[in-house]
Amino acid sequence: MQISGSLIEQATRVVVCVSRPVSLFLGLKFRDPPTLSSSVKFVATTRIVSEGSFEQGENRAARISNPRRRNINPTSEMFVEAPGFKLRENMMKSSRFSKVLQWWLRSVSIVSLSLCAHSTWAALGRDAGSVEQDQVHMKAALRLAHSEPAYTVHELKTPTGTVIREYVSSAGKVFGVAWQGPWLPDFRQILGDYFEPVMQAPRDRRQGRGPLVVRQPGVVFQSAGHMRSFFGRAYVPDMLPKGVSADVVQ
């Protein structure tokens, strides 16, 4: 789960892959935009690290190394330094809180790597936080591309040049994903629980080769294009925000 050099230019919001609620992490901030080195891994939260919990500036990616060896002030602020950047926890209100946090930070960096690497979490149909998981999994740069009253569009650009757009309803659900670029996206990641049903489903058109359309009661999947130039989308009809057409997923 190393974040490779190619994404660093525009990296990246950071996601911690964890196996339990981590609301403790609300307020984790990057103090300095990180300059990533090869040893940089990552940290992240999913829902926890909401848009507002980061400082402005888009260059973010991080690693939490052993915080005990770093400059940690457990009573007020917490700094976690890693090569080229620092993390600051500034919402720690109690020593008990900070101890939990320290323990967690110590254990998270290695553990979370394996969790991420084998994560079955993914985007479609899941909570908005899974956008960040997709981002980490695909080593992508993320930006908020577009915002409507009923939904927002998060755009991930993978190092291989494929752009993935994830459509998040105001209810916080990823109701659609779309992609375009020279290579297909990691469908297992971005389709999440819908991956197996889509892959196992009978195709709409069996009389020859061409773009793929899968229509299942719970999901629609369309994949088109050709080698070196693909595009497509998937969406969950039942999760479309009221008054929003599936055509927005593109």
Partner: peptide
């Protein structure tokens, strides 16, 4: 002929597949 992805909107590209 058959359907493909929706019409390209503000997000840009999709393709017309001339099979």
């Amino acid at each position: 002929a058959g359907p493909n992805n929706p019409t390209p909107g503000s997000n840009g590209a999709t393709g017309f597949d001339w099979g």
